[in-house]
Design a protein around this nucleic acid. Sequence first.
RNA 1: GGCGGCAUAGCCAAGUGGUAAGGCAGCGGUCUGCAAAACCGCCAUUCUCCGGUUCAAAUCCGGAUGCCGCCUCCA
Length: 485
Amino acid sequence: MLIYNTLSRKKEELIPLEKDSVRMYVCGITAYDYCHIGHARSTVVFDVMVRLLRHRGFKVSFVRNFTDIDDKIIARAAAEKISSEEVAEKYIRAFYQDMDQLGVLRADIEPRATSHIPEMISLVQLLEKKSFAYSTPSGDVYFRVRKMDHYGRLSGRNIEELHSGTRVAPGDEKEDPLDFALWKSSKPGEPSWESPWGWGRPGWHLECSAMSHRYLGIPFDIHGGGQDLAFPHHENEMAQSEAAFGRQFVKYWVHNGFVRVNSEKMSKSLGNFVTIGEIFSGFLPEVLRFFLLTKHYRSPLDYSTQYLLEAEKAVKRIYSTIELLEAAMSRNKWSKKGHFSQVHEEIQEMERKWDQAMDDDFNTAEALGHVFSLVRLANKMCENKSFSKCESGREIMDRILRIIKSWGRVLGLFNKPSSEFLGQLKSIRCTRSNLDQHHIQSIVDRRQLARKNKDFALADNLRDELLQMGIEVMDTPEGARWDFS
RNA sequence: GGCGGCAUAGCCAAGUGGUAAGGCAGCGGUCUGCAAAACCGCCAUUCUCCGGUUCAAAUCCGGAUGCCGCCUCCA
């Protein structure tokens, strides 16, 4: 398995520190607002990584934290006139609601910063003892960046470059402008904890160092997060952890690319973000999840409604094939004739390619291409009557179905009953177009009656009427069905 | 200003040295009372541009242009 390591800027063979087990930490959200598509992407991408690693037989210990104390939470609490705890609680709950719908598995451990204050304090004390940290008269504690060799190694910058961009603010108690806060003294009214340096709260980077150490030990295998966390967050995390424990912190650093809108990063400050909840009012969660996996996780992903519509069609195509296979399988008479060893070979080749794509730095975009190859094969098989009626044809259809489901379990897709997905799709599309399913059905019924009476002119008129509403009628041996065109 | 990334058809997108996956849209055909779905066929002699290396380049190197990100909170 290959995994791209930000530290080396190369794909590397994934060799866990401990054979067959992977310890993985991903930076979760700061709970101060609803999640947008960018959060969805990061969470889904790492969810797929965990699923694939487990599928490949690794025992994965997966930690994803919540930052539940920070400046923005405090600001939000003031704005909403509730406590910081309530702010964090509210948005953590919203996170679960969104991510559960997206099919994101819970992490094994989901620690919160405020539950690990003692660990953080002892980490700072350890850094102080090793003189990597110093406290100031006002009760702040800073990390001495210049004392750390190779600072900037992760994000690819050096201290001198960084230094040229900084200024010393008047009244700053830092020895060096590059130093970052490990502990911040609190202002009156702010949430605070008692510490050797007085009442205060932890700096942002500290929690991840403390919690990863506690739950995974050091070093551990994979540390992930959004690209924007590489600097300063992960750089500082690495510096303080390696300074404190005197050994390597993380073996593989993994960063996902941004979601963009009109080629710009989706972000709060630009105001171009779309929350997950907003998407769900018009699209099924599985469509969003599929969309997020249509591009390689490290590349930027452009978002637009049009792309979501395309993803919707694609997922529908896959579920339609699943439905077709399930319907075919429900037959109970099978002839003994026919054997299709070549088809089995073809399928095996697709499996090989799928595995290879996923094992090459989690190339879900390519892997989805192979899903469609399999779908086309399945449709072709179902089309072929001599094939779809014989015993060995049944075996192949069963095999394809099991492969799609198995791939789907890794991707977190395609595992709903097809009738459930297709039904939900219909109803959400009705919502989107402001149409009533019963009304549509009544027109379809009238058309069926007209057809029965061979009044094709009326039947065609009704078809046109439906078409104007964006509805297409399909005449099948089992009767008329309708769907959005 | 410093550092980094990206550029593949009408759109989305994979492909890091061996002759361009896949999806959407479009076109022709099979099927159909007409349709739809599905299937079959077509749809980039070419990968932003200009040089170079090589038997061979979308892939490697140099340059140009364009877009984006990080350097401050950000998934």
